[in-house]
Design a protein around this nucleic acid. Structure first.
Lengths: 146, 146
DNA sequence: GTAATACCTAAACCTAACTTTAGGTCAAGG
DNA sequence: CCTTGACCTAAAGTTAGGTTTAGGTATTAC
């Protein structure tokens, strides 16, 4: 059994964050002795799950829901799977968006590299072809060379 | 010249957002006739830049800074490039993080798919090999099969 | 003439995930 | 005895990027 300060050190988290998680119901089994929180294996495990699911972009209320489902047993497997499928789809579309943004940023870096070499944007602006494929054209249009 | 309502319709943005952008200094050249905003080509162009840079995850204050640099001329090419290089590096590391999270989510989906088929987690837990390569092991450890 | 619109401002509100503050208990050390 | 440090609570503050509200002006429509 650990105090809140020990757990904070173990996980590199501020004490206030652990109290906040507790308040959000993420440690439903947490015990106390004379008002003081006592963190056991259950809570350390919960914290590992929290850190993991936060990386997946899950909100605290969803993490709490997931934990409740875990406590309910095998009947909630489908719900849990559905939650992860939804997260997966969301994450995939975000990654796709970010890759598009990254293409634009690469273009911007290249663009200013040329502009720095030339001392102006005339040549680099003329360098951009008119007949680009659609998906790349979007990048140029978006970046539209301001 | 357009009114705020017309621009809102053109860009599919709420009027309040355009007022907010104005307040943040994103339309430094904006003119008014008897108190009413008049959006011209400069402002429409600015809005296109804003939409583009927002996709790259840039904050409003950075977008404003970038616009100021653009107005200052070629001497700011290096600053502008540095800003995009920094954004690019940030974006690349975020994408890498998200791909790691995505691997974890895929694992979770597979895990619950098996658990649903079996009606319990016994087989799927036993299925996870002990001797995984490090980078994949992290995924399993993170997902640690709760 | 009055009602509906479109515009304006300042200021309050919103969300999520924390953090900070103010005020209080309790045990050990000097 | 009294100060330091670890714990506690409730409530307010923080951040970004808006949105909403309350109150006011001005033009057009009936």
């Amino acid at each position: 059994m650990y105090t809140i300060g020990q757990v904070a050190d173990m996980f590199g988290l501020p004490v206030s964050t652990l109290r906040y998680y507790d308040k959000q119901g993420l440690f439903p089994e947490l015990e106390r002795t004379s008002g003081i929180r006592r963190f056991g294996d259950t809570e350390l495990e919960a914290l590992r799950v929290i850190e993991c699911l936060k990386k997946a972009g899950m909100e605290i209320k969803d993490i709490r829901l997931f934990m409740e489902w875990c406590a309910e047993g095998p009947s909630t497997y489908p719900k849990r799977k559905a939650m992860f499928e939804e997260r997966k789809a969301h994450m995939e579309s975000e990654i796709a968006n970010m890759n598009r943004a990254l293409d634009m940023l690469k273009f911007k870096c290249w663009y200013y590299e040329q502009a720095i070499q030339d001392g102006n944007e005339d040549r680099v602006k003329a360098l951009i072809p008119d007949d680009l494929p659609e998906e790349i054209k979007d990048t140029y249009d978006n970046a539209h060379t301001q």
